[in-house]
Amino acid sequence: LGHGSGGQLMAELLRDVITPALGGSGVLEDAAVVSVGSTQIVFSTDGFVVTPRFFPGGDIGSLAVNGTINDIAMRGADPVALSLAYLLEEGLPVAELRRITTSVAAAAGAAGVPVVTGDTKVVERGGVDGVYVTTTGIGVRAPGVDPSATRCRPGDVVLVSGPIAAHGMAVLSAREDLGFDSGIRSDSRPLHRLVCTMLHTAGAAVHALRDPTRGGVASALNELAEASGVSVELDETALPVARQVAAACEILGVDPLHVANEGCLIAMVAPESADRVLAAMRRRPEGAAACAVGRVGDGPAGRVTVRTLVGSTRVLDMLVGEQLPRIC
């Protein structure tokens, strides 16, 4: 179970079992780039499992559309089309399937990325939990653009496009009926237009892009730092977290940096272009609250640290399985 929370155990599962079996490089990116003739196709697939299936700010259908669009966008491509596959548990109410599908269509419509093919399978009761959704997408990338997890460089500015930790807290709160004051909504939304703006502004100076989904900003930064062989230092005071989200995190004893997001991105941008990129991001609604939160350094490879409110510097690592306390 611990492998699913997007942290270190997942990283090990991928590193030790899945990637080697497929002959992969070991560097994890959100999407792959495949050249067809002179055209660069960006290709990504993602399976979606979420309980509950409907939550404030979204549902499994919109999540599946936005998630794959974002993975394609993180490699600097413009998404072109999606496929959609359902794995349904026998007995799932048809009305619910209809509601999810309507949501898929609406999300695809809003993003301007059509669903062009798909598949539906029904398995016996207990085979899956209600419905699993898999989306696959392709996009096309302009020449000369190559944001990649391996391209972070010391000096790069770490930008985040908006408030963090909302999605994970919204889902958790809805699932467990924790009775938080309402107002915590998932940030699920497509980010490809924001990325387009950023690349248009600074092109190759945008070294890396990542959507910090499972495992949150902490895992995303650890993966980037590891893949690029650099360190990252965050400034806690600069991290955007909505007040209610921060309060909920505090009650639950979770670090907002470890909570999943579905509608914000992290960008590593060359220092001379950072201000311009930031200004461009802020002109778009999904980037209105964008800000600089840290810097890439030349410390030990893969080490991510946070400068705290009181001025100390703590190591920020990936979640290990379920969050197990370490202090004795």
Binding site: E250, I251, L252, G253, V254, Q323, L324, P325, I327
Partner: peptide
């Protein structure tokens, strides 16, 4: 431990 380390 409600909240893990927070309970400590």
């Amino acid at each position: 431990l409600p909240g893990g380390e927070a309970a400590v």
